[in-house]
């Protein structure tokens, strides 16, 4: 049931994206336009078809008796997923603000201590080795890690 509902949202999302792509493609020069315009126009048609079929499936499923139990299971798993997505999004946002090296150190220490439940020594050693490898790789590849908005390290 929840999956059917989210499928509708995803179809709407795709429809909006493809419609925007069609509208934007109309502003391109003729030679730049033909490929994205036709591809997006075809995609709009199929996204619309998908949306209609998903709404039909959702309405049909509403009559089903099992929906409450399934919804509860979906919600429980979803909560766990969101928690780890926040970790990952937080990590990337941290890189943008604090820079790569500082955020990576912080991320590893915090994750290993609070999620993996490593002890302090294990966490410190694992983090130090990882940072060492990153520095070595960066040196070999001549990479400049993002310093973030604060521009510290």
């Amino acid at each position: 049931m929840a999956k059917a509902k989210y499928s509708i949202y995803f179809s709407i999302f795709l429809l909006v994206i493809f419609t925007y792509a069609v509208i934007d493609a109309l502003t391109f020069a003729k030679l730049a336009r033909f490929f994205p315009l036709y591809i997006a126009a075809i995609a709009v048609f199929f996204a619309l078809m998908d949306l209609i079929l998903n709404i039909y499936r959702y309405l049909k499923l509403r009559k089903s008796e099992q929906r409450e139990q399934e919804d509860q299971e979906d919600t429980e798993e979803f909560t766990g997923t969101v928690r780890y997505m926040i970790w990952i999004i937080g990590y990337v946002t941290g890189i943008y603000i604090l820079g790569f090296m500082i955020t990576t150190t912080l991320f590893l220490v915090l994750f290993l201590l609070f999620e993996t439940k490593f002890g302090i020594i294990k966490t410190s050693v694992s983090t130090a080795i990882t940072i060492g490898i990153i520095l070595l790789f960066g040196n070999m590849m001549n990479l400049y890690w993002p310093k973030g908005l604060l521009n510290i390290f």
Binding site: L14, I17, F18, A21, F28, A29, K30, L31, A32, F35, P36, I39, A40, I42, A43, F46
Partner: peptide, 17 residues
Amino acid sequence: LLGLMLGTIGGAPAVSE
């Protein structure tokens, strides 16, 4: 189709757009 659209992001091959 979504993959094809993502592939069109950036410079056009035929014209500077």
